[in-house]
């Protein structure tokens, strides 16, 4: 029985790969990082776009498959792995970065669509060894447990303070609601935002 299902699995994969190849899609059979893989393998039909970005103050130019998200470009091409991929569907906020000064989700942003723009990631916040006041506040308040959501939380918090939405605890909670923390460090995150705001 087990043997049987494994056979089915193999032939199903075989079929998928064959039909994918027939459509010129070989390289995208590997979910969930299809776009970057496709570029490396040069998938037929997908034109390549030149993307010029300013990332953390540095000019960068990339030749990309137009399917590559800003998140994948940062992580896979520019080695800026501080920005995290949580859900990859716009539902968790782990991938939050700033584009032209606004906090956005890099997982739903196509890199090709932000050519010419300035991107700030978690790596671009500190001034050399001096942490950004929001980063210091997160350390000070224990605003994290596993730390996976933290880069997104910090990028969101920096923007929220600039937006002027850090008035009360309720306001902070509402305007940080785009960042989910599976460890439930919310209490300390709110504290950290308040501390950073008072210092700001």
């Amino acid at each position: 029985m087990e043997e049987q299902s494994r056979d089915d699995e193999v032939s199903r994969r075989g079929f998928l790969l064959t039909s994918a190849a027939a459509a010129g899609l070989t390289a995208i059979a590997e979910h969930p990082r299809p776009a970057v893989a496709a570029t490396a393998a040069g998938a037929a039909g997908a034109a390549v776009v030149e993307v010029a970005l300013k990332v953390n103050g540095k000019a960068r130019t990339l030749s990309l498959d137009p399917r590559v998200t800003l998140l994948d470009a940062l992580r896979e091409r520019l080695d800026l792995t501080g920005t995290k991929k949580g859900c990859d569907r716009g539902q968790c906020g782990a991938c939050t970065v700033h584009v032209d000064g606004r906090r956005v989700l890099s997982c739903l942003t196509l890199a090709a669509g932000v050519s010419g723009k300035a991107v700030i990631t978690i790596e671009g916040l500190a001034d050399g060894d001096r942490l950004h006041p929001v980063q210091r506040a997160f350390v000070e308040c224990d605003g994290l447990q596993c730390g996976f959501c933290t880069p997104g939380q910090v990028m969101s918090a920096v923007a929220l303070i600039e937006e002027g939405y850090a008035g009360s605890e309720a306001e902070i909670r509402e305007h940080m609601s785009g960042n989910i923390c599976r460890c439930g460090a919310y209490q300390q995150i709110v504290q950290a935002v308040r501390m950073a705001k008072e210092g700001a």
Binding site: G93, V104, L105, S156, L160, H175, G178
Partner: peptide, 9 residues
């Protein structure tokens, strides 16, 4: 609607 990040986009 949605989240601050999504509303910015």
């Amino acid at each position: 609607s949605a989240s601050p990040q999504i509303r910015n986009m």
